[in-house]
């Protein structure tokens, strides 16, 4: 039920005939749907947690590509207009990152022809690929790892979550934030959490108000660049913990170090499938040693959110794998 209600937040951003096709799909597919993909001249596709299906014009799931409804240029043009609320000009900045966040915190990935100006991406034209990603809040997603993150009833470890895309990184982070902010019975008293939500994905704030449950002691700085946001948070909101998503740039690393030196604990995520990927990122060199005390590695081996390993600061395994 939870997922279908999330799906109904995404549907209005699709052209009308797509909406009716998707609504006719069987309940199991609707319930496990993670992505809706539009590619010009190719069949409409939905991706579920285990399989992907093409969707026929009658709204039936099919496996042969030629039976699927072929997405036209007009469909894509209309879909783009709906996604950007009929105002392409208002999402210029977001397009430079290749996606637009729609209300409800769902992300729509965009591909097409990029236009460069002075070597930097100016905009994307001739958009011919769209990917609607249905973000869901899974309460309790962080349960298997929370005990590894907590150090004592008022303190946590600096934690880095590593995972390839689509493995539940943001979902786990969101639930960690919620639990650390609310407190967990006797084992952890709630802490003040400063959430720097650059892509509006974690809290899904709309007009500044979080639409997802991120806890009672959480302050959200919405759509703020991470590096500046972390510093702002430290100065203004006196957080015990700062949470942020997908660090990657050198200035992010500097801000993280500044936060750690200010005595603030940190929970953040990064793209990668293992520790090697993290150590290969030269921009994050400053973070490679003595910053993080816990690494959580995710995969989708047994569905999204599979915990591969939990490691301490010296890369010694402390949990995860088959024992969770």
């Amino acid at each position: 039920m939870e997922n279908t209600s999330k799906l109904s937040e995404v549907l209005p951003f699709l052209p009308q005939h797509f909406q009716s096709m998707i609504k006719k799909l069987p309940w199991e597919i609707l319930n496990s749907m993670e992505e809706i993909r539009l590619r010009q001249g190719k069949p409409l596709m939905v991706v579920c947690s285990r399989n992907d299906y093409f969707v026929s014009g009658q709204g039936l799931p099919v496996t042969a590509p030629h039976q699927g409804y072929s997405v036209t240029e007009d469909d894509l043009r209309n879909a783009v207009q709906l996604v950007c609320n009929f105002s392409f000009y208002s999402v210029e900045e977001e397009l430079k990152n290749g996606f637009v966040t729609i209300s409800g915190g769902h992300r729509v990935g965009i591909c097409g022809k990029t236009i460069l100006e002075n070597g930097r991406i100016k905009t994307i034209r001739d958009i011919s690929f769209l990917n609607y990603r249905i973000a869901r809040q899974v309460l309790g997603a962080a349960d298997p790892v929370i005990s590894h993150v907590i150090r004592s009833p008022g303190l946590i470890y600096n934690t880095l979550i590593l995972s390839p895309p689509q493995c539940g990184k943001t979902t786990i982070l969101r639930d960690l934030v919620r639990q650390l902010s609310n407190g967990i019975g006797h084992s952890f008293a709630g802490c003040k959490v400063g959430l720097v939500d650059e892509r509006s994905e974690i809290a899904a704030a709309s007009f500044g108000i979080p639409k997802n449950d991120v806890g009672v002691r959480t302050d959200v700085l919405d759509s703020c660049p991470k590096a500046e946001g972390i510093i702002m948070m430290i100065r203004s909101m006196s957080p015990d913990i700062i949470a942020t998503d997908e660090i990657g740039k050198a200035e992010d690393a500097d801000a993280v170090v500044a936060a750690v030196n200010a005595g603030v604990k940190l929970v953040t995520t990064i793209h990668g499938s293992g520790m090697e990927d993290f150590f290969r990122k030269q921009d994050l060199k400053r973070l490679h040693t003595q910053v993080f005390e816990r690494y959580i590695i995710l995969s989708r081996r047994q569905g999204p959110g599979t915990i591969e390993a939990v490691m301490d600061g010296d890369c010694g395994q402390v949990g995860g794998g088959n024992d969770t």
Binding site: N85, F86, S87, Y89, S90, E92
Partner: peptide, 12 residues
């Protein structure tokens, strides 16, 4: 509204 404010069309 559009060029300087980048206000979404329905609001503008």
């Amino acid at each position: 509204e559009i060029v300087y404010g980048a206000t979404p069309l329905p609001h503008a």
